[in-house]
Design a protein around this nucleic acid. Sequence first.
DNA 1: GATAAAATATGATATTTGTCATGTTATCAT
DNA 2: ATGATAACATGACAAATATCATATTTTATC
Lengths: 225, 225
Amino acid sequence: MSKCESCIIKEFNSLKSLTRDELMRVSACKTGKFYKKGQIIFEEGEVLNGVYCVKSGVCKLTKLSENGKDQVVKLVVKGDLLGKRSLVSDQKTNLSAVALNDMEMCFIPKSEIIDDLSKNPKFTMDVLREMANDLRESDVSLVNMAQKSVKRRMAEILMYIHDNFGTDNEGYLSIVLSREDFASIVGTATESAIRILSQFKKEDLISTKGKHIKIEDYNGLKWIE
Amino acid sequence: MSKCESCIIKEFNSLKSLTRDELMRVSACKTGKFYKKGQIIFEEGEVLNGVYCVKSGVCKLTKLSENGKDQVVKLVVKGDLLGKRSLVSDQKTNLSAVALNDMEMCFIPKSEIIDDLSKNPKFTMDVLREMANDLRESDVSLVNMAQKSVKRRMAEILMYIHDNFGTDNEGYLSIVLSREDFASIVGTATESAIRILSQFKKEDLISTKGKHIKIEDYNGLKWIE
DNA sequence: GATAAAATATGATATTTGTCATGTTATCAT
DNA sequence: ATGATAACATGACAAATATCATATTTTATC
C-alpha cells in the first residue's frame, strides 16, 4: 500500500495538517479497504473506532426515520473523512454509510490519531473547520427540505450531482442512483421521485439511458419551482 | 459585572474547560449585553468576531430561504454558545439570531479566545464535542423535516419545548411563540400552523390562554402521526 | 379609551404529495 | 436463453398542505 505522505487525497482533508512524522505513523497503521457497490460500510448504532478516508467512489450517509424510511443526509466523496465524530465521542454513530460505487478507502484507527488531536493544534483546528463546514451545509439542507417543493429539491440534486461529480464523456451524470435513492435524498415517496423524473424527461429537461441521466437543459432545471 | 469563574453558566458549555487563568482573562474582556424580545442579535451575512454566551432568555437561529421565508434552525438557550463557527472561520454567518425573550448575554471577542483553542487541547476538544453534537442534532432535524408530517412536527416541537424549557407554575409552556414562529420552526405556512394548533385544541391535546399554550395530553401528542 | 395595526382564526379552493394497484421493463442467477 | 426478481412506470384516488379571502381578536400607540 502507498504511503499517506505521498497520497494526494490528503490534500483534500484535515490530514494535510499532520506533520511528516505524524503522517508516517498514521500510514503505518492504516488499513486499505474496498467496498463494492451496495455494500454497507457501517450501520447506525455501531461504535466506530476510527475514521475512513475516501480515496475513490461515492457513498451515502443515511439515517433511519421512525416511519421506517431511510433518509440520505449527505453524499460522501473522494477526499472526505468519514466518522470524524467518532474521534471526539465514544457514542454510537447516528448514521449508516453505504457504498454507491465500488469504493477504495483507508481506515485509520482512532487510537492512532487521537493523540494528534491534543498535540497538533493545526490539525485540530482543521478538523474543527471541517465540522463547522458540515454544520453550515446541514443548515442549508434543512432549510431546503423545509421550504422547497419536492420538484425543486429534485432539480437541485440533479444540478448538485452535475456540479460536484461531473459527467462521463457522453454527458451522463457520473453518479448513477436508483429512483429509490433519489427519493431518499429528496425526502419523498419512490413513486413521486419516478413521476418527477418522468415529467422532467417529458419537458426535455433531462434524458435517460437506463439508469443513466443526462441534463439537457440546466437552465430549465434552475427555474423549476 | 460578575466574573466568568464564578458564573454557573460556564458549566454548561466548553468554557468549563478553560483554566482559571484563561477564565480570568476572558472575564476581563467580556462585554455584558442585553437584548429585548424581538431584538436582532446578529444577521445572516454579518461577520462575527466573537462568541455569545447565553445567560438567560431564549433566541432563535434562523436562515432565510430563497422563497423569502425564514426557517428556524435551532432554539438557543441558557448555557449555549452562539457563534462558535466564527472561532474557526472568518466567513460571514449563515444564520440570524433573534431574541424570543428578554435576554442576557456575554460577548467574548474572538481575539481573546482564539489562542486558547490552539493552546488548551481540553478546551478545543470540548468545542469539537459541542460541534459534533450540533451536527448530530442537525441530522435528526433533517430527517424529521423530510419524513414527518407537519402535524407530527408541530406535536414534537410542543413536546420539545415542554421537555427542554419547562412550564410556568400554571403549567403553560414557558416559551411563548407567535404562530408565525411555530410555522417557521415546523416549516409550514402560518395558516397551517394556526389550523393545526386549533385542531389540537379541539382535540383537547392543548389549551391556550392568549399566546400561552398548555399541554393537556402529552401522551396524545406523542401518538400523533 | 379610541383607533390603527398586527396577530389569530376559519372557510373555500387549488395544488402538491402520498398510497395502492397494476403493468411494464430491466437485471440477474442459473 | 429463461424464468425469477427487482426496478421502473403510470393511473386512480386520497390525504396533506398551500393559497387567497375575509372575519375576529389581540396588542400597541397615541
